[in-house]
């Protein structure tokens, strides 16, 4: 069978009405980007889930390697001073 019978995979991202960023919702197969958008509309926005769709060929995505999670992500864990709760401000100052 040619790969014509096995269309490539597209990852689908939807931006909802509430103004947040596009969010990954799943994937689907399509022969081209136009069809991918049309299919995404049918599959992922049947209940008004979105007002904008992005489709990206799956094989164009580079992902971080889970085996490198340690060096990539743990350095942030001990930097509590990056969070507002690290600083003591008296209650009478109010919300800051």
């Amino acid at each position: 069978m040619s790969n014509k019978d096995n269309w490539k995979i597209w990852e689908v991202f939807i931006r909802s009405r509430n103004g947040l960023s596009h969010k990954h919702v799943g994937s689907l197969h399509a022969p081209d980007a136009d069809m991918a958008i049309k299919n995404a509309r049918d599959v992922y926005t049947r209940r008004s889930e979105g007002i904008s769709i992005w489709v990206v060929p799956s094989d164009e995505i580079t992902a971080s390697n889970p085996e490198e999670n340690e060096p990539l992500f743990t350095p942030a864990d001990d930097k509590v001073y990056r969070h507002p709760t690290f600083y003591d401000i008296p209650d009478e100052i109010g919300h800051m």
Binding site: K4, D5, A30, P31, D32, D34, M35
Partner: peptide, 13 residues
């Protein structure tokens, strides 16, 4: 339908 979609995709490309 699948054939038509393929043909269209090829033409566009």
């Amino acid at each position: 339908v699948r054939e038509a979609a393929n043909a269209y995709a090829e033409k566009q490309e």
